[in-house]
Design a protein around this nucleic acid. Structure first.
Length: 279
DNA sequence: GTCCAGGATCGGA
DNA sequence: TCCGATCATGGA
């Protein structure tokens, strides 16, 4: 159930299952941050946005109703019923209940395909603060200015015209050549992101992995976060540990069409309870 | 100084 | 097919 209305400060939203903090800090995105208690800012869809969490309400600051309806309902996946998803997951495997309860409020953002691909190429063998720094520098150096101090994510076409020397400001290390390979294959049309949308999960994976620097994990993250394939199931070291503890002997395939959402609940749960999972 | 980070690639068994 | 070393970089 979603209710929204225009108020002085922007658009006020009331909806179930939407925690800004959990959604932004669960590891799916790298361009949002909490600037003060329950105030978040970030860039998405080529726009700068400030969000406030006040009780059970969320304020989209300085946003009009048309902008909210045309852009942010989609980006924040507000028409998807996460209560229903949770119920379906718990019906399949009740052992998930603790993780689902802990992570309740996460929504899988509908991020830009190229941004998700590029971001998770950068994420490999890297830590989250540094991933955020590299992406921030990428946008500052090669994106377009969209407000006083924020920049859009540069297009694949723009990146494809650069070389390793240009990109050295990112300090991205060995990942630089991977970013370039991805940008060039997309700019040259060797890989068509739009057509990947309509492929089976298997073919989509295979196609993305033609890019040098894209393996199973990055492909899976790209599909889940950039293509909203909720059945994609990224497995990293954290998920391996968590699955051993929580889902011993369970095949991710058993989690069905919302396996990716389950993955996000489990991932966030294990990251926020390191002492329990990390030993 | 050492270890690690939402991995992928490469070469050799 | 499988396994270990290696890949840049910066923070802990």
């Amino acid at each position: 159930m979603m209710i929204y209305k225009k108020v002085e400060r922007g658009v006020e939203l009331k909806i179930d299952e939407f925690s800004l903090r959990k959604t932004f800090e669960c590891g799916q995105c790298f361009r949002w941050c909490e600037v003060s208690e329950n105030v978040f800012k970030g860039v998405a869809k080529g726009k700068f946005l400030t969000l406030l969490n006040e009780g059970d309400k969320i304020i989209f600051k300085d946003v009009s109703i048309p902008e909210f309806e045309n852009i942010w309902i989609d980006y924040f996946d507000l028409t998807t019923d996460y209560i229903d998803i949770k119920n379906q997951l718990l019906k399949i495997h009740p052992v998930l209940s603790e993780a689902v309860k802990f992570s309740s409020g996460i929504r899988i953002l509908r991020q830009d395909r190229w941004e998700a691909l590029c971001s998770f190429i950068i994420s490999q063998n890297n830590n989250i603060p540094r991933i955020m720094n590299i992406i921030s520098e990428l946008c500052k150096s090669f994106g377009e200015r969209i407000s006083e101090n924020s920049f859009s994510f540069p297009s694949a076409r723009k990146i494809s015209k650069l070389d390793e020397n240009n990109l050295s400001v990112l300090r991205a290390g060995f990942r630089t050549k991977y970013i370039l390979d991805a940008a060039r294959k997309i700019a040259e049309g060797k890989i068509d992101l739009k057509s990947i949308s309509s492929m089976t999960l298997h073919d989509a994976r295979k196609t993305l992995m033609k890019i040098c620097g894209v393996g199973p994990k990055v492909a899976e993250c790209t599909l889940l976060y950039g293509f909203h394939r909720l059945d994609a199931f990224p497995i990293d070291v954290w998920m391996k540990r968590a699955m051993k503890t929580l889902l011993n002997g369970i095949d991710p395939c058993e989690l069905g069409k919302y396996a990716g959402v389950a993955q996000q609940y489990i991932f966030y749960y294990s990251r926020m309870n390191k002492e329990f999972f990390c030993h």
